[in-house]
């Protein structure tokens, strides 16, 4: 950093004294280094992505013959056909089941816990429970994977989708509780009081009051959890073995092992498995980006 910046340090910034314009605009206009970095990073990100998409539509023979960055001379869907015929619809379905089966229960139970932690603040018991969850933020999944494997075998769940779902829920809970508790805390106390006066119990207030008012946070947390599970690799790798239980990331890996020479087909599998998330990104970019920085938004 220091070395990249030093050339700028040496050139004195002349226009400062001459042009007393608005601060923001002037500062930003002179941020050369930032602009260079901005465009440079765009190229770093976009070139590989462009290459993936373009190549996935090329015939394998074309791929070797022409410039890899040129668009295909002969557009073809053969690669996609090969991917679809290699059982990817099934893997896709598995991923959907695992992602939904994790996200919905994880967010619901985390929401209930967050509600209890906020509403029952002052209780020693709940403080301990909260402490346990916060400790969970520091547990790396890799470190716990061997006992999880043992546990899953003992529960006779090995090689099933439930084997992926259960630990995924457990590891989604701590961050979800943290983020959701921060938002439940923002629900005005008066609203709880007035509902209580009307005779509502905690269970009613949980769903009728806190739930609708924390909906943005619930969406954010769901997206973060869903994306993490959708992209998860370690749990499927260790807890399943039959091909029909594969989720997409695992399927990608085995597919590449099989067709490593057929680069266009491998890249078609990458495009196809990423497409749902990119579509989601196009539709709900703000929530998704918010979800990615979950925990920092407050």
């Amino acid at each position: 950093m220091a070395t990249t910046l030093s050339p700028r340090t040496e050139t004195p910034t002349q226009p400062t004294a001459r042009k007393p314009g608005r601060r923001g605009r002037r500062l930003e206009r002179r941020n050369w280094l930032g602009s260079v970095m901005g465009w440079f990073w765009l190229a770093v990100v976009v070139i590989p992505l462009y290459w993936i998409v373009v190549t996935s539509f090329k015939e394998q023979s074309d791929y070797f013959a022409q410039n890899p960055l040129a668009p295909p001379q002969q557009w073809t869907l053969d690669n996609y056909r090969l991917v679809v015929e290699s059982d990817f619809p099934r893997y896709f379905l598995n991923s959907v089941v695992v992602a939904a089966g994790t996200t919905v229960p994880a967010v619901l139970v985390a929401f209930m816990a967050a509600y209890a932690i906020v509403r029952g603040a002052g209780s020693r018991l709940l403080a301990v429970v909260n402490g346990l969850f916060m400790m969970g933020l520091a547990i790396p999944l890799q470190a716990a994977i061997i006992p999880i494997y043992l546990l899953i075998i003992k529960l006779h769940l090995y090689d099933s989708l439930a084997a992926i779902v259960l630990p995924s829920i457990a590891f989604a809970i701590p961050l979800s509780v943290l983020v959701l508790a921060n938002f439940v805390r923002d629900v005005p106390r008066d609203l709880f009081e007035s509902m209580r006066v009307d005779g509502a119990g905690e269970w009613t207030m949980l769903w009728r009051l806190a739930f609708p008012l924390t909906r943005p946070a619930l969406v954010t947390v769901s997206i973060y959890t869903g994306l993490t599970v959708w992209n998860g690799f370690l749990l499927p790798l260790i807890l399943t073995q039959s091909p029909d239980k594969r989720t997409l990331p695992l399927a990608l890996w085995t597919f590449q092992g099989q067709y490593s020479v057929n680069v266009p087909a491998v890249l078609a599998s990458v495009v196809l498995t990423t497409l749902p998330i990119v579509v989601l990104y196009a539709v709900g970019r703000r929530q998704l980006v918010g979800g990615l920085s979950a925990g920092f938004s407050k």
Partner: peptide, 15 residues
């Protein structure tokens, strides 16, 4: 309200 933490706690503790 404490019981509401139970489902999350159970899964989290177990897995």
């Amino acid at each position: 309200v404490a019981w509401m933490t139970l489902p999350a706690l159970a899964v989290f503790v177990l897995f």
